[in-house]
Design a protein around this nucleic acid. Sequence first.
DNA 1: TGAGTGGACTAATGCGCTTGAGTACCTAGA
DNA 2: TCTAGGTACTCAAGCGCATTAGTCCACTCA
Lengths: 359, 359
Amino acid sequence: MPAKRSPARRPTMKDIARRAGVSESAVSFALNGRPGVSEVTRDRVRRVAEQLGWRPSTAARQLSGEGAATVGLVVARPADTLGVDSFFLQLISGIQEVLAERHLGLLFQVVEDVDAECGVYRRWWAEHRVDGVMVVDPRTDDPRPDLLDELGLPAVVIGGVPDARHPGLSTVWADDAGAMAAVVGQLYALGHRRIVHIAGLPGLAHTERRIRTLRTEAERRGLCEVRSVTTDYSDAEGAAVTRRVLAEDAPPTALVYDNDVMALAGVTAAAELGFAVPADVSVISWEDSALCRMVKPWLSALSRDTVGFGRKAAEELTALLDGGPARTVQVPVPRLIERESTGAALDSQPRPRGSGSAG
Amino acid sequence: MPAKRSPARRPTMKDIARRAGVSESAVSFALNGRPGVSEVTRDRVRRVAEQLGWRPSTAARQLSGEGAATVGLVVARPADTLGVDSFFLQLISGIQEVLAERHLGLLFQVVEDVDAECGVYRRWWAEHRVDGVMVVDPRTDDPRPDLLDELGLPAVVIGGVPDARHPGLSTVWADDAGAMAAVVGQLYALGHRRIVHIAGLPGLAHTERRIRTLRTEAERRGLCEVRSVTTDYSDAEGAAVTRRVLAEDAPPTALVYDNDVMALAGVTAAAELGFAVPADVSVISWEDSALCRMVKPWLSALSRDTVGFGRKAAEELTALLDGGPARTVQVPVPRLIERESTGAALDSQPRPRGSGSAG
DNA sequence: TGAGTGGACTAATGCGCTTGAGTACCTAGA
DNA sequence: TCTAGGTACTCAAGCGCATTAGTCCACTCA
């Protein structure tokens, strides 16, 4: 027995029908803009509905065959990893802009891992809760596309690479490979030959793509002291890896971080070891956020329109919901914005100076 | 006509009834644990249901009087202000932990302002979308409690101060006043007499409470060079205010920032003006996050368990949904964690040294 | 033997909405 | 005058579930 404070009762179509002196069906026709009622009646019904503050009950509507008017988004990341970077809230903001227009709700859930995520999809599907979902953090060897196919749940994969095996899924993606190539190109032009890429979570599709591209680009230029190290995206691991690689005999002269948080943690760690940025080591953040302009030196970063990314994804999903075909759309390649943390490489072998002695 | 890929059909109670050889009512009784069926039948029905992967349709359930099994959360902040601080995603993580257990969905929406937020509540109410809502960022002179009373929508206010005028609302709050008193006390003990509080958005209840407490505490100690300045929480304004107050003839020796982002922007701005932290000016961040340990000097911060805060709030809401009474519960007072950004005040009047000349 | 009792189950209704199948009325054409 | 074809509606069924009011069948006790 739910808490009740005897509030205003919600008006139903029956109320409107009574007040307008027509049948419920007429009200339905009038309100849904379908033929079968005269313009006068339609107007009258509309006015009564508005006056009563009526809104269709999504439950009832759904029960009679329409959708749930809701889309789902589940992110599978531990809580602490989630909070730090600004990506998700930005993305969600963009998604909302589009959904709000169409009066679609967003069902949001955070879970621990992909298995749990699949469980959520199953439940949502069985409970008729959502009409479609947005999938983030696509992985190599990802179980979700197959599942969504099986359930017949319309979905758009955000940040995935186009995948011919799942023609039912839309994909919205940015060309990370192209961006990585540009980064390597620019660092190379600045004279950098030893580059370390502090990557994100190993299973993620875009992580793997960046790693692969880095290797390809390095090989193409004959660089052998170029590599990637995966992390969990946290500031702690970002700092730890930074300390480790800078302590090597021939430390890298450029560091590329897969998010803003690690980049910041990295410059701080580098500074503690006596490495000046960008004099001794250049730093690039893959994510551009307010953070990058809040520290000195300002961080050079790959900038993309995350809000727009979310908007685009939501548009694709609504198109799918309207019965449109699955599509693959590409958003603009992230642009490298050079600020203060990148510069020419030193010719000589850099040696840590100052306080911190590398262990 | 929605996109269909002729997927698996969702099983209904009718399917179960057929397979188990009983009526739909028996299935309902069996599955909802109410009397009217034998234990053998109940078991059999349960087994069939599980085997079929059945889950109750929330829509149908709702239509027959139960709730929507969903709670709502709307945050009214512009997208760019939202992304930066980690508070919301942490809060949501906590909320989810509790909701997931009870199979409650979270309908999430971000809007521009409180008016829009009220509109969302009205719509959700009329559409039967949610059973209750969580209200964040309570304000002085807030229209939302009245509205929620009027709609009879169970709600818990997160971070509000207990309000006797709305006995229907639960409140989960932290004692910001006590925390501010502690901060002032500690700064006073360190010898600080000129303190500026770089506050958040002016309309917010906790902003006003902190400002009021700061003034009270200052008066109690006879300090007249203590004041608050409100901002929009952005790094830009945080930096701007910092620059402005440090350029004064008798600049403050301690700065208290209402979030981590502004605190970070503040120390950077201070450094550019030649102020060393904490030698020339002490800095405290009201929000403790990874950020605070990612910069040198590490930021002293008021730490609270944001995830736990969200958990607590969700628990109160579910209690309300279960028909419990509205309550006011307090979470632990934020604790001041002193790191490297706070220290004793200089006796002498500090003067900017070094590069930056204040304009 | 018949009335009474309680346990196990079925039938029927309603929630708010959509929708296909009518129905009543009007006009036009043969 | 009768029919064909609209138009503007109304009726009734059904979506998946909960729930109230039965129904049927032992079984007990007088």
